[in-house]
């Protein structure tokens, strides 16, 4: 760790400690609502103080409050106060914030949008393409392209098929995601160079396919979105076309 890194870390420690102090104080106040000394509050009777539900949270939040105070003192003694109000000290580094934001978009829209609604093979293929193309080599425009692709696919699935009743069918969100995945793959092959980029289509298609078929048919486990565009076909042909071959 360089002296600059240490200075940034100490500055962020100041803010981390302050944040933790505020959170601890808030939850200590909230914990005071739970009966401690045998009072009867909101219909709940706390017989003895040591049987109270308040005792554990009180102990933990009090300890966290004290520890955050100690951490603040250590950070200030190490010079954390000097850099605390700089952009980096506050936690704002433009490039770093950009990388974090794009990763947050990709993961959030994949997990909240695609996993419950879109075929697992298609959604995961898009995820792998986004992550390898976006972050291999660290080019900002690639990160932005990858995040935009996932944002588009995820927000379509999330907005158009928000209710749980629509998670498995219809398959228009599967088709939209598949088209975005194919588009991003073609874009990656046009713009990127090297063996890693050329391997993206194979990795993105094979890894989720092998994983999901191994889980569903090898380990006989549940997998997300069994009614997805591809998986429904795979499952149908496994039981109707393939399985009778060796069963007979």
């Amino acid at each position: 760790m360089t002296p600059e890194d240490k200075a940034i870390l100490r500055a962020r420690d100041v803010w981390g400690a302050l944040g933790l102090m505020v959170i601890s104080a808030f939850f200590l106040w909230r914990t005071s609502f739970i009966p401690l000394f045998g009072e009867n509050r909101a219909g709940v009777s706390g017989a003895d103080w040591y049987n109270s539900a308040a005792i554990v949270p009180l102990g933990i939040w009090a300890a966290l409050f004290v520890l955050s105070c100690v951490l603040l003192i250590i950070a200030l003694r190490d010079g954390g106060g000097k850099g605390a109000f700089t952009a980096v000290g506050v936690g704002w580094n433009r490039a770093e914030a950009f990388r974090i934001a794009t990763i947050a978009v990709i993961l959030s829209f994949y997990i909240f949008g695609l996993v419950p609604r879109v075929d697992f093979i298609i959604g995961s293929g898009l995820l792998i393409t986004c992550l390898i193309f976006g972050y291999h080599g660290g080019h900002p425009y690639r990160m932005l392209t990858a995040a935009a692709a996932m944002l588009l696919a995820g927000s379509y699935a999330l907005i158009v098929h928000f209710p749980q009743a629509e998670w498995n069918t219809p398959h228009d969100d599967d088709v939209v995601t598949l088209l975005i995945w194919l588009g991003l793959t073609v874009w990656a092959l046009i713009r990127g160079r090297g063996p890693v980029i050329r391997a993206i289509p194979f990795i993105a298609a094979l890894v989720p396919l092998i994983l999901v078929t191994a889980m569903a048919f090898g380990f006989r486990q549940n997998v997300p979105n069994r009614g997805g565009l591809f998986f429904a076909q795979i499952e149908y042909h496994y039981y109707v076309t393939l399985r009778p071959l060796w069963q007979n």
Binding site: S124, I128, H136, V207, P208, L211, V223
Partner: peptide
């Protein structure tokens, strides 16, 4: 760059397989 997305996918699948609920994801 190739390994980490695979690990991510495996982790999500592993958790879903055990808990069989989106809440766990």
């Amino acid at each position: 760059a190739v390994l980490m997305p695979m690990v991510l996918l495996l982790t999500i699948t592993a958790v879903y397989v055990q808990e069989t609920s989106m809440l766990s994801v």
